[in-house]
Simulated scan of single mutants.
Amino acid sequence: MGYISEDIVPLGQIRARFSELAEEVQNGREKIITRNGESYVALIDARKLDYYHRLEQEHIHLLLLDEAVKGLDDVEQQRTITLEDFRHKHGR
Rank of each mutant, 00 (worst) to 15 (best):
Glu76Leu: 14
Thr82Tyr: 05
Leu49Asn: 11
Asp66Trp: 05
Leu83Cys: 02
Ala16Pro: 04
Gln78Met: 13
Val41Thr: 13
Asp74Lys: 09
Arg54Cys: 08
Glu56Met: 06
Val75Arg: 07
Ile4Cys: 11
Tyr3Ala: 14
Glu84Tyr: 06
Lys48Pro: 00
Leu55Trp: 12
Asp66Gly: 08
His53Ile: 14
Ile32Pro: 00
Asp45Ser: 02
Gly71Ile: 10
Asp85Lys: 13
Ile33Arg: 01
Arg47Ser: 06
Glu30Thr: 09
Ile32Trp: 03
Leu43Ser: 00
Asp73Trp: 02
Gly91Phe: 04
Glu67Ala: 14
Arg54Tyr: 10
Glu23Asn: 11
Arg54Ala: 13
Met1Asp: 11
Ser39Tyr: 15
Gln13Phe: 08
Arg87Leu: 11
Leu83Gly: 02
Ser39Met: 11
Leu65Gly: 14
Ala22Thr: 09
Leu64Tyr: 08
Glu56Phe: 04
Lys70Asp: 04
Glu23Asp: 10
Gln26Arg: 15
Ser5Glu: 10
Leu64Lys: 08
Asp50Phe: 12
Tyr51Gly: 01
Val9Gln: 02
Ile32Glu: 00
Gly91Val: 09
Lys31Pro: 00
Gly91Arg: 09
Gly71Gln: 02
Tyr52Asp: 07
Ser5His: 06
Gly37Ser: 09
Asp85Phe: 02
Arg15Tyr: 04
Gly12Thr: 04
Gly37Glu: 08
Ala46Gln: 12
Gln78Thr: 02
Leu62His: 14
Ile44Gln: 02
Thr34His: 03
Gln77Ala: 15
